[in-house]
Simulated scan of single mutants.
Amino acid sequence: MLKRTISALIGAPLFLGLIYMGGLYSAFLVAVLTLFALWEFMQIGEKMGIRTWSKLTTVVTVVWLASLLSGGAEWMVTVLVFWLLIGLGRLALTYPKTSLSEASFNILAVLYSVVLLSHLYLLRQLPNGTEWTFLTIFLVWATDTGAYLIGRQFGSHLLAPQVSPKKTVEGSLGGLLFSVAVALVFWRIAGGATLIMYVILAIIIGISSQIGDLFESALKRSAGVKDSGKLIPGHGGILDRFDSLIFALPLVYYGVILLS
């Protein structure tokens, strides 16, 4: 508990500070997070008995980050398409040495750990990106807090017992309500958009962040591990700490673009 508290007191201000400063600072943050997240994902794959393409996925990640951070958004779709073709092509050329599950896992490694998480940078770069990014982060935290408090007090119906035996339907609804409540506070303080937009984003974040948490739990259960890594004392790895954000960030990014 002490390690967890110390890590939060140090890590949270550093994380929020780099996002607030933006530019090269948030670019550095995203590059570090995605590379560690990819490494953890590959470690999980190895524990599952899957042959991982460490060198190839690292090269694709570097190319993706270079395109992203240099402002070359038009190249990002190109990188994704080529990565998909490379993965499927390797399966076609080396089957049965390369299995479909192996190719799928390695393709997913980049999509999940790198592409989805790097939307943190894309969201920060939007007009009013600081506010939208902080909104997403605090609503994810609010969802986690609400789900824990309500679930502990009133939870009786299990949400996904095979994945996370302690999560309940009541806790999930509590997390969603906390997300909407915090969004209303943001709307009153920051404004900048309509009330309905804040509510929609709160619902999106409240649902997607919980699904992201469950996905990472299912991934770890498949590998038989408790944590994705040990980088953050008391919290586990990057994927453990950012699993909820990974699902929420892209949805908020495209939601803001569509609703603005």
Rank of each mutant, 00 (worst) to 15 (best):
L126Y: 04
T94I: 06
S164P: 10
A160Q: 08
A223I: 07
L176P: 04
R188G: 15
L122H: 11
T136Y: 01
V77Q: 14
I211A: 02
Q125G: 13
P250S: 01
G11Q: 12
L2F: 09
M48E: 15
G191W: 07
A147R: 05
M21V: 15
D227S: 14
A202E: 11
L123G: 03
V59Q: 00
L9D: 05
G72K: 12
I238H: 10
Q43W: 11
S70Q: 10
G89I: 12
G191F: 13
A12G: 08
V225Y: 10
E170I: 06
R152L: 10
L149Q: 03
I200P: 01
K167I: 01
S260K: 08
D227I: 12
A223N: 06
G72V: 05
P233H: 00
A92I: 14
D144Q: 13
G146C: 00
G155F: 04
G146S: 13
L120Q: 04
L56Y: 09
V77R: 10
G151T: 04
Q210R: 03
R4S: 04
I204E: 02
T143Q: 01
T5Q: 07
V163S: 02
G237K: 08
A66R: 02
L9N: 06
G237A: 00
D213G: 00
V115M: 13
P96I: 09
L93K: 13
A109H: 14
K220I: 13
H235N: 14
F36T: 09
V140N: 03
F134K: 09
G229C: 10
V199Q: 04
I204H: 05
A223E: 14
L120A: 10
G255I: 04
L100E: 14
I232F: 11
V81W: 04
V140Y: 00
L2K: 03
M42H: 14
L100A: 15
A66G: 09
I203C: 07
S179G: 08
V185Y: 03
L176R: 01
V79I: 12
Q153I: 07
A142P: 00
V115R: 12
L29Q: 09
W187E: 14
S164N: 15
L173M: 13
G206D: 05
T130R: 02
A37P: 02
T94P: 05
H235W: 00
G11M: 04
L158F: 12
F186S: 14
V62D: 05
P250D: 07
R90Y: 10
E40F: 02
F134G: 08
V140F: 03
E170R: 01
R90H: 11
L195N: 07
G236W: 03
S101Y: 06
S208H: 05
F178Q: 03
V225D: 08
G89W: 02
A12Y: 05
Y253I: 07
L93A: 09
G45W: 11
T61A: 09
L116A: 11
F41S: 04
V225W: 03
P165V: 07
S209M: 12
L231T: 13
L85A: 15
Y253E: 05
R188W: 10
K47R: 15
G155M: 09
S260E: 07
V163R: 09
K166S: 15
